[in-house]
Design a protein around this nucleic acid. Structure first.
Length: 443
RNA sequence: GGCCACGUGGCGGAGUGGUGACGCAGCGGUCUGCAAAACCGCGUACCCCGGUUCAAUUCCGGGCGUGGCCUCCA
């Protein structure tokens, strides 16, 4: 049983060997809490939840540590809080916004069947560690102060670009943005920036200010997982600059010792063939989807595509996922079973090939089906994906009764009329072999 | 402009140097008053052009197309 993972750092599938099998460590970049999470944000959460579950299966539940941070220091948060602060202090508005958004996020992600991570650090709890990290970088000649900012000197890190697989020259050649006057090098990035009285800020050797985004993850991962850990994950758009910069600052602060050994990145998600964006109006939140679809359906729909491939998120696809899940949940043995098929597990071990694993589930015996579903984070219980209860159940029962009595009288014309009538309301009748009639919602 | 992915049947989606994964839809059958569900059966797909090879969808080169990153972004 060998787990192989595609490492962005080497661009190859590698055998996964933890530094310490009694403490397997994974860090995944979590949400910036200023707005509802959209379905694209759900992809890494679900993908890395599956990996978390697989690692727990392989190494034992007590031996896997999963950290997913919450970014609650950010200029988008400040801007949003400013809009809705009213007469309150900005800090109160920020606190309220991040607390509320964080709560919604947790509800959404739980509905998608994701386990809580082992640790969920918030940036505001780790500011002293960030300052200490920056001080180390300044002392080591990797960072400099300029106009109240502290910047990372990219030229001090010969490895810079190793994750993105791009040289400094290539990046500078492709730069499309004006270079801030306080930067020495065009690719230098901010570790610390000044805050005026209207913004959240913390005292520091460089005055009252706040950390840059990349700094948060470096400080929190070090505090909770140590200098070097096993897996660092996130969306593919984070490869550059976020993860590249995390590597640069962490490894510069740690005498070149690796930040993470394996870097994993999930692909992007499009909606109905188009990039999801607010301007196109196809920006769909997890919350909105959960109003119309069971969380398990969204989860399966996500897992039917390999995590590194792009997904085209469509209503058609979700309907298909729902159909599959209904059949599975009816056929799966009660959840007590934890047995799973070898081909199923082999598929997951091969760089988390969930589409292949799902194909194996279609071939599996009921007990193995249940075991596989549980490992993937599903709850094989028909009630969990039962039709929502919008339906006038009593009225339907009454109609069915009426229909069955005319059927007994062999008045099939009237029986079919009742069936048609219900069908126009989206209710599909099924006459079972034992003489009973059941119904379901037609989609 | 620079860097990087991807292009498989009606649709979704794995995979492989040589017998058409798997699912959804569709069609045929069993069953049924008729349906539905369930079960059984049915499909000669790999963007184009070259090259390597006994053999390429799979490897190499070129082309076309789609998408991503280079700026906040999962």
């Amino acid at each position: 049983m060998v787990l192989r993972l595609y490492n962005t750092l080497t661009r190859a599938k590698e055998e996964f060997v933890p530094l310490d099998t009694s403490r397997v460590r994974m860090y995944v970049c979590g949400p910036t809490v200023y707005d509802f999470a959209h379905i694209g944000n759900a992809r890494p959460v679900i993908v890395f939840d599956v990996l978390f579950r697989l690692l727990r299966h392989l190494y034992g539940e007590a031996h896997v540590e999963y950290v997913r941070n919450v970014t609650d220091i950010d200029d988008k948060i400040n801007a949003r809080a400013q809009e809705r602060r009213g007469s309150r202090a900005i800090l109160d508005a920020v606190r309220e916004l991040t607390a509320e958004t964080g709560r919604i996020y947790h509800e959404d992600v739980a509905a998608l069947g994701c386990l809580p991570p082992t640790h969920e650090p918030r940036a505001t709890e780790f500011v002293p560690g960030m300052i200490a990290l920056i001080e180390r970088l300044v002392a080591g000649g990797h960072a400099y102060e300029s106009e109240g900012h502290v910047l990372f000197d990219v030229s001090s890190n010969p490895d810079y670009g190793k994750l993105a697989h791009r040289t400094l020259d290539e990046m500078i050649a492709g730069a499309r943005v004006e270079i801030a006057p306080y930067k020495r090098g065009p690719m230098d990035f901010v570790l610390w920036k000044p805050s005026d009285e209207t913004l959240p800020g913390w005292p520091s050797p460089w005055g009252r200010g706040r950390p840059g985004w990349h700094t948060e993850c470096s400080a929190m991962s070090e505090a909770l997982l140590g200098e070097t850990f096993d897996i660092h994950g996130g969306g593919i758009d984070l490869v550059f600059p976020h993860h590249e910069n995390e590597i640069a600052q962490s490894e510069s602060a740690h005498a070149g010792r690796a930040l993470a050994r394996v870097w994993l990145h999930n692909g992007f998600l499009n909606a109905e063939g188009e990039k999801m964006s607010k301007s196109l109006g196809n920006f769909v939140t997890i919350r909105e989807l959960l109003a119309d679809w069971p969380g398990d359906v969204l989860r399966l729909n996500m897992l039917r595509t390999h995590y590194r491939q792009p997904i085209d998120w469509t209503v058609r696809g979700m309907n298909e996922s729902w159909t599959i899940l209904e059949r599975w949940y009816e056929g799966a043995e009660p959840v007590a079973s934890r047995r799973m098929g070898e081909p199923f597990l082999d598929a997951l071990l091969d760089d988390l090939n969930t589409p292949q694993a799902i194909a194996e589930l279609h071939r599996a015996e009921p007990e193995e089906l249940a075991g596989g579903l549980v490992l993937l984070g599903f709850s094989p219980d028909p009630g969990r994906i039962a039709a929502r209860p919008p339906i006038p159940v009593e009225e339907i029962a009454h109609d069915i009764e009426a229909r069955n009595s005319v059927r007994k009288a062999r008045n099939f014309q009237e029986a079919d009329r009742i069936r048609e009538d219900l069908a126009t309301k989206g209710i599909l009748l099924e006459d079972n072999p034992d003489g009973t009639t059941s119904w379901e919602v037609k989609r």
